[in-house]
Write a protein that binds this DNA or RNA. Structure first.
Lengths: 115, 115
DNA sequence: GTATTATATAGTAAAATTACTATATTTCCA
DNA sequence: TGGAAATATAGTAATTTTACTATATAATAC
């Protein structure tokens, strides 16, 4: 499946690493998942996901730097949304994996490391 | 596409975050990509990818802790391989994204942040 | 047995991330 | 005009990650 595909370029590896690392935080995954539903204000994220407001702003800033989210400003409110298909693609992967785990099609089990 | 799928569980978010964060390092992406070709010894990785041997061992240890790779020992050599379908799935996503970027189907461009 | 090969592990300094508190800025409304 | 609401930003201590050097361990070859 994978072996006969295009060689991944060094630039892509760098960018992919940045995006994957950025996505590698529970809060940010939650935020991104929430944004799949459509654009949201900082306050909506802050209240609905029960996170401190500065934390939300901080995460959004990081994700904006990495081109994961964009925003439009309207008065005092900032409406954030997902920036590109890459992110949706990754999330689709995650959802598919989740579905297969749920259905028992895969018996793979993450372990909690003890160190 | 995504909106009507199963809600991602909190446990999955935690695990996904761990795996994504671990994969979010250029060297580890290279190693994982190399392992797609089949099991490899530490020395092969170290020489073929031109990384310091302790660095390779360190990355492999981290990825083993996260169930991204497994290994079998034969004499003094350790043969590492990818541990599960989750990783291949993520890599497939990355490859697909790469292909679409290469073909121009997507005009998305990562930016290099200046901070 | 001794050197060599292959790999893991220990130790560590520098850098990055995280979570948090406090505060500044902007806009809106009474 | 003055205050409240929404959000960004600054500052910071604790933790984690990273990259590196040195060394330990175990198997093998001579």
């Amino acid at each position: 499946m994978v072996s006969n595909q295009t060689k991944i370029s060094p630039e892509f590896i760098q960018n992919a690493a940045r995006v994957l690392k950025t996505l590698g935080h529970p809060d940010r995954i939650k935020i991104v998942e929430f944004l799949e539903d459509g654009e949201k204000t900082v306050g909506q994220i802050h209240r609905d996901l029960n996170m401190h407001q500065p934390i939300v702003s901080q995460h959004l800033k990081v994700m904006h730097d990495r081109d994961i989210v964009t925003f439009r400003q309207e008065g005092t409110r900032y409406f954030y949304s997902l920036a590109n298909n890459f992110i949706t693609k990754i999330l689709n992967c995650m959802s598919e994996v989740q579905a297969k785990l749920d259905s028992g099609e895969w018996d793979f089990e993450f372990s909690i490391p003890n160190n």
